[in-house]
Amino acid sequence: MAEPMKIRAKMEGDAADVKVLMSHPMETGQRKNEKSELVPVHFIQSVIATHNGKTVLDIQWSQSIARNPFLGFRVKGAKAGDKVTISWTDTTGDKSSIDTTVAA
């Protein structure tokens, strides 16, 4: 099950600075559990960031992104009050999304 994300968007100069923390194990398929069994591969493959409904970032990830992934990006021309949305899909088809408004 997808757990909650954290997002923060704040104006810095003429751009919105966005920071996102996702909650996901990002299993590589190479780690063994306490019974020495391989933990199956399970990671976020795709992330889409939108600004007022328009895609600004289209992201593809592998299992080499660290557990509980962090993402930072900037949107030029954004204004305080604009809406920023993040949506991800993982290798099992699980999805999660979150939105926020850009703070001044």
Binding site: T28, D58, Q63, S64, A66, G72, F73, R74
Partner: peptide, 14 residues
């Protein structure tokens, strides 16, 4: 990148 995203990204790798 599209629609005004700056060519900057920050993440954490393994």
């Amino acid at each position: 990148f599209s629609n005004g995203a700056e060519s900057y990204i920050s993440t954490r790798l393994k």
